[in-house]
Amino acid sequence: MSPPDSAGRTATMAAEVTLPWRWLDPWREAGEVETAWRSLEARFHPPWFLRWAWVENWLACLPPGLDLRLAVAGSVTEPEAAFFIGRRRRWRHGLFPVRECHLNATGYPTYDNLWIEYNAVPGRSLAWSELLAALPAGWDEFHLPGLDTAALPGHALATVPPGLIGISRKAIPSPRVDLEAVRRRQAEGGDYLDLLGRNTRSQIRRSWRLAEETWGPLRLEEAADPGEGAVFLDRLAAIHQESWQERGEAGVFGEEWFLDFHRRLVARHFDDGIQLLALRAGDQELGYLYNLVANGRVLFYQCGIPRLEDNRIKPGLMAHAAAIRHNAARGEALYDFLGGDTRYKQSLATGAASSSNDSADLAWFILQRPRLSLRAEALARSLKRRLFPSR
C-alpha cells in the first residue's frame, strides 16, 4: 500500500486538516510499529483486541504479502493516534472492482474471522476529516467492523461526513455482568444467581445438583501457565468442534489458521491476560471457557461445552456462573459476553455495556464514496428485497 503522496513522506492534508500521518510497513518496520502501538497502549489503555499482545500475534500470523499498513498520526515515539489499514481490490458480482479499506482488519475473511470487537482508533479523539485523511488515495469503501460505539469512530456514525454514504450492516448489544454488583450481593449474604431471573436461577441450581449427584463435587480450574493453557485450549477446541459438527456446522477451530493463531497467542502472551477455565465434576468435563482480561474487564471469547445425555444439566450456564463468581472474587469489574443477543447471554447478564437499553454497543459500518457502480449495486439489492422479501 502506498500513501496518497509517496511512501515514507508525510501526506499533504486538505486545508482544514493539519494532522500529519505516516505509513509503516508492519513487517519491514516492525520495530517502529511496536514502539508506536505500545506508546498508545500505555497512554490510552485500549481493549484487549487492540492491545499489543493481540496485535503482535496477529501480525506474526498474517502472511507478509497482504496489503496492510499502520497509519500513525504524529511521531512514532508518542503518536496522537494510529490504526491499521488493510486494503483489498475486490470484484463485485464479477462486473466491477471496488477498492476497499478495512479498519484494523485485512479484508480477507480467512484472517478476519477472529471477530475482534470494541474496534476503534487508539489515541486522542479525531474529526472525520482527520481520520479519513489517513486513507490511501482512490478508496471506494471504508469498512469499520465491530466498532465500539462509545469510542472513535463508532461514536460518530450518526454524523457521516458530507459527500459520503453511511451503511449500517449490524448493530448489537454486548450483554455483561456487573461484578461489583455481584460482590455487593455476596456481602449481603446472597449470590450472583440472585441477580438473575427465576427460571435461569432454577436451571443453574438444578444443573449443579444433578451434576454433583451424577459425577461428584464440582470444581473450577484455571490454567496456571502457558503449558497448561495449551492443554486447556486444545480440549476447548476439540469439544467446540465436536459440538458444532453435531449440529451440521463447521466450527471456527476447524480452520487451521484460526487455531494456530490462538495456540501462538497462548504460548507467547499467556501472562498478558489470557484466562482459560475448566469446569469439572469428578472426571466429567463440563466446559472450557477462553476469556481475555484487561483493565478490569473480562471478555468471554470462546468456549467448548459438551453435549450431555441428560438435557436437564446445562453445562454452559454452569460454566459461566462459576466463571463470573471466580472473576468477582478476583476483583474484576465486568464480565462481558461480547456481541450478540442470544438467549443464554441475555439470561446470564445483569445489563448491557451501553448506558441505554436502546443503544447498541457494537456496530458494523461501511463508508462509501458516491460511485455510480455502488449506487447501482445498492439499487439492485433494494429491488431484490422488494421482489423477494423472504430471501
Rank of each mutant, 00 (worst) to 15 (best):
F84C: 07
E100P: 01
G86T: 03
W91C: 12
L68V: 14
F83I: 07
A73Q: 05
A82Q: 08
L62H: 06
P97M: 03
H93N: 13
V98A: 10
R87G: 08
R99T: 13
A73W: 02
R90M: 10
W91E: 12
G74K: 07
V76A: 11
H93A: 14
P97A: 04
R89K: 14
F83G: 01
P63T: 01
D67W: 01
P63S: 03
L68E: 01
L70F: 04
G74Q: 05
H93T: 10
G65A: 06
R99N: 15
T77P: 01
L62Y: 03
G74D: 04
E78D: 15
W91Q: 07
R89P: 09
E100S: 06
P63I: 01
R90C: 08
E100K: 09
L68N: 03
F96Q: 03
A82I: 09
G86S: 00
D67G: 03
V72H: 01
V76R: 11
A81N: 09
F96E: 07
I85G: 09
D67T: 10
F84M: 11
A71P: 06
I85M: 08
R89F: 05
R69I: 06
R90P: 00
L95I: 14
A73V: 05
T77A: 15
L66K: 03
L70C: 04
R89N: 14
R90T: 14
L66V: 14
E78V: 08
E80G: 13
F83C: 09
V76D: 12
P79N: 07
W91R: 14
P63W: 07
G65Q: 12
V72Q: 00
W91V: 11
E80W: 10
H93W: 13
V72T: 01
E80K: 14
T77F: 13
A82E: 12
A71C: 08
P63E: 05
L66N: 02
P64L: 09
E100L: 14
L66W: 04
E78G: 12
E100N: 10
G74V: 09
G74S: 09
W91F: 11
E78I: 00
F83T: 01
G94E: 05
F84H: 07
A81E: 05
H93C: 09
F96G: 04
F83E: 00
A71K: 02
R90S: 14
R99V: 11
F84K: 07
E78K: 13
R88L: 15
E100T: 06
R92N: 10
A71T: 00
S75H: 11
R89M: 13
E80T: 11
A81D: 11
T77E: 15
S75A: 15
F96S: 06
I85Q: 09
W91I: 02
A71H: 00
R92I: 13
F83L: 11
I85C: 08
G94S: 08
P63V: 02
W91S: 13
A81S: 13
T77D: 14
R99G: 02
R99F: 12
A73S: 08
G74F: 03
C101Y: 00
H93Y: 12
R88V: 13
F84I: 08
V72D: 00
F96A: 03
G74R: 08
G94R: 06
V98P: 08
P97E: 10
F84S: 04
L66R: 07
R87I: 03
H93D: 14
G65E: 10
F84P: 04
I85V: 15
A81Y: 07
L62I: 13
